[in-house]
């Protein structure tokens, strides 16, 4: 029943998957460009932002139309209301990838003060977290909650490590201050990307359970309780 409506809902999921695939690639390309000093690649990341912005607007309009015409309730309503949040978070992630790419262009002529190790690692963790959140959205499955919480903590720790290391280099030689500041900023962008990816998982949690929780407040006992409950409901 309601086959047209069901198709519209399915199409939204497909479009979000497409939007997130573009965003993920922008993210990995921006850090790859940083590592390889590939200005041309960085410029393509900046160009691709228009695609993501257009997709966000397109999806907003589609969701508004469905809400206006189909009167969604219950899980459908939660899915559609959550779509607004998910696409906003994806759009912000794309913006942050653009920020990283702009820094690549800024540093293009410079010799890096040290080989980049933690920034690519932080990027890898953020990508993993984003993939996991989008997979959770597609399958409406929150069983990987613990991994999300762990990954977010690892990203925060890595960002801290980047800040401390850059600080040490800047104190050692004032010539490092510009680069050190830029690398700290990039670490911060990646940390925020992790936060946006976590927001997406929080939204999936709302779709599945009807409840909102702040993952920053989750302790091990609460995670176990949630996962135990989820298992029982399955």
């Amino acid at each position: 029943m309601r086959s047209e409506y069901n198709e519209e809902l399915l199409k939204i999921k497909e479009e979000i998957l497409l939007m997130s695939t573009i965003t993920e690639k922008m993210l990995s390309d921006s850090v790859f460009a940083l590592n390889s000093k590939d200005v041309e690649l960085a410029k393509t990341v900046i160009d691709r932002d228009d695609l993501v912005d257009a997709k966000e607007i397109e999806l907003q309009l589609v969701v508004s139309k469905i809400i206006a015409t189909q009167g969604p309730v219950a899980t459908d309503l939660r899915r559609l209301a959550s779509t607004y949040k998910i696409i906003t978070n994806l759009e912000r992630i794309a913006d942050l990838a653009v920020n990283i790419s702009k820094r690549v262009i800024e540093l293009a002529e410079e010799v890096y003060m040290k080989p980049l190790i933690d920034i690519p690692l932080e990027c890898e963790l953020a990508e993993k977290l984003l993939k996991l959140s989008i997979q959770a959205f597609i399958s409406e499955d929150i069983s990987r909650l613990r991994e999300v919480v762990d990954l977010e903590n690892e990203i925060d720790d890595t960002n801290e490590a980047i800040n401390s290391e850059c600080m040490a280099y800047m104190m050692k030689d004032t010539k490092n201050i510009h680069q050190g500041t830029v690398f700290c900023l990039i670490g911060g962008y990646l940390e925020r990307i992790g936060d946006h990816a976590t927001n997406i998982f929080e939204t999936v949690f709302y779709i599945v359970t009807g409840d909102y929780i702040d993952f920053n407040d989750l302790d091990e006992q609460t995670i176990s309780e949630i996962l135990g409950l989820e298992q029982t409901q399955k």
């Binding site: 029943m1 309601r2 309730v73 219950a74 899980t75 459908d76 309503l77 939660r78 009807g210």
Partner: peptide, 19 residues
């Protein structure tokens, strides 16, 4: 009832998928 019903039959009915 309209955001998070407990029973799947309620959900199926209010979302128009009751067949």
């Amino acid at each position: 009832i309209f955001t998070n019903p407990n029973d799947k039959r309620t959900e199926d009915y209010i979302t128009g998928r009751f067949g």
